[in-house]
Design a protein around this nucleic acid. Structure first.
Lengths: 202, 202, 202, 202
DNA sequence: AATGAATGAGCTTTCATTCAT
DNA sequence: TATGAATGAAAGCTCATTCAT
């Protein structure tokens, strides 16, 4: 039993100082940039001592990379969750597209984080590539399958992948800048239509 | 008289030292980031004293913005130079597209600079927008004209602009990462084909 | 009952962990210095938790002093063990000298520890003096006896003690730097000859 | 002309912030140890900003080494200055010995600095050796000359050098601990007598 | 007795900027 | 214009020590 004077609020095992640090780092890195965010400010806003931050993440860079890998995993999980068997290739593509857009709308800060850092020299190239490939590898397969079926144009695969990525980033930018349009079927359909028309065979 | 793409920028006398500082800042900002580059290192590599840098640019931010505006102007000039009257709308679009790609291939460092900073909080939003709009305004007109002529799909204009930008960034990334393909007609044509197919009316 | 060279030291139960900490501290303090060695690194290399170190030694300084006193005791014991009754004063002196050199050769790390810390402000002056005097007091008696017998020169006693100490440190440095000479009778005899010639009456 | 209100005290070209830093570092390193002395405290007591210290010495280690080499040079100069031609070998040796003792008495802090750091791992081994050899090389020649002349015992030269060094350190310790005895001929003579008797041939 | 996450003061070093020359 | 020594606030990181388990 807890009274007003001894609430059990503080009693939950604060194992998640680590999580608090990650959460705070995400929002500060996005709003102020990596170098613009001091480790002291992260610790303070996360409600922990500076030493605690370095207890969990030996350097600021490691903190950044942990954040990156964590979010990338969340994104990958979200896409995988929504994949349904059955349906034709275009439907599959749309499902994937809309799931990805949904995730970015539901997690705008994380999407901004990706946009800012997935191509920045802040994160070791190896980690970036690994993260990108695990997602894009999936898309590459889908494109190649579509080309065999005569549904997708025969342009160089690397160029097409880069193009997909660019269109995806553009769409998320649009919906994050205009949040009220994220649930508008007209705009959502338009974003996929542009994407699909670029790829499809004439 | 100033045109849309070449607004009047105060022409400071481009002394050797001033230009050396700008050139060095460009390459260091791209390779090490804004915060990762000290004013001391810029001055040293440019062969001037630290005081000299601050004589020409009162703050590091002003140096950055001067760089941004200078390069943006160069890019705009390059596009304008290649615009030819006559021809149909698709030819106009392709001319513009290929000129822009050409510039990015000829100036990879400057393109990387754009990619890193044109969306970063490093540069005042007003300056970024001004720079972007002076280019994109041009594209917007072209798209609207195409829609009236029934050549371009009727999707929301802001979405289409964002999409154009995204596809352009993707294409330049591709050609900068694969420099040997920049002169290959097959790949160059493919890059425009993807772009145009996305936009055109069915 | 306690003798001059083995005063009663509280015998804390030398658990495995406590000894592991002392051993590790010795080697790290010698190789990296007192301030260059973190308590965390001692604990880690000793295979215990940081808290355990502070369970046995309330502060880092206390750990250092425990180490100092422990080693000093070992040294004193080694000297005492080899003292034989009978023989003349010079033989006594040589016995003492060679025992001390033997110990330093057998325990080079501990000797280095003495060399680094027996005169450093790291260890409270009182503890240093106590440790030094318990050894040097013994030497002082020997010198005074020699002077009475006309075997040793009549220089100021404090100067002679300092000189003995200095020559001893020099000899151990020599044998630790040249371990292969430690068993060479020629060099061992030479080291005592220098020492004795300095002291003896003409 | 300077008045009370505008003394020219502050007008000497303060190029010697560098020297002020070295002087302050010397006294603090000796009294508090290298690690016990913060760069901030050196700068503050020297009357300069922290940045200034790092302007002159890129790291704390470099400051330490600069100090070491500077003082070593001073010591070498002092010895060389007092060397007089003529006289026999023993007189030469005494001259050298007394000059060295004089220097240590005149510069007790610098001598303490040597005592603390000339054998510490704080200073790179190469620098330490270089410094030691330039002095000891001189002594080595003198010893070998004396051996040829039959004035000095034939013990291993390295052992003798180490012994000389040890006796010198002991003597300076004695005179620095007992400053009033530094000018006492009796004690000064005794210190050399001990030294010389150790070396001389029987 | 033993653990190790948490603490926060303190450290060395960096760097944009100033100013006397 | 040009210089570079000087500044000092602020940064990332360390570490002896505590304490709940």
């Amino acid at each position: 039993m807890t009274t007003l004077l001894s609430p059990n609020v503080e009693h939950k095992p604060m194992t998640d100082k680590r999580q608090a640090i990650l959460d705070t780092a995400l929002s500060l890195f996005v709003s102020q940039g990596f170098h613009g965010t001091s480790t002291a400010s992260i610790a303070k806003q996360a409600g922990v001592a500076t030493g605690t931050l370095f207890h969990h993440f030996p350097t600021k860079e490691v903190l950044m990379e942990s954040l990156f890998l964590t979010i990338k995993q969340e994104f990958a999980n979200a896409l995988l969750l929504n994949i349904k068997e059955g349906g034709d290739l275009k439907e599959h593509a749309e499902q994937l597209w809309q799931s990805a857009i949904d995730w970015s709308i539901d997690n705008p800060i994380k999407q901004l984080f990706f946009q800012q850092y997935s191509m920045s020299p802040m994160i070791a190239a190896s980690i970036r590539e690994q993260a990108m490939n695990s997602i894009l590898g999936f898309i590459a397969q889908l494109i190649q399958k579509g080309q065999l079926m005569g549904l997708i144009s025969h342009y160089p695969i690397e160029l097409m992948l880069e193009n997909c990525h660019g269109q995806y980033l553009a769409a998320t930018r649009y919906f994050i800048d205009n949040p009220e349009l994220g649930k508008d079927k007209h705009h959502r359909d338009a974003s996929f239509a542009l994407f699909w028309k670029a790829l499809r065979a004439d």
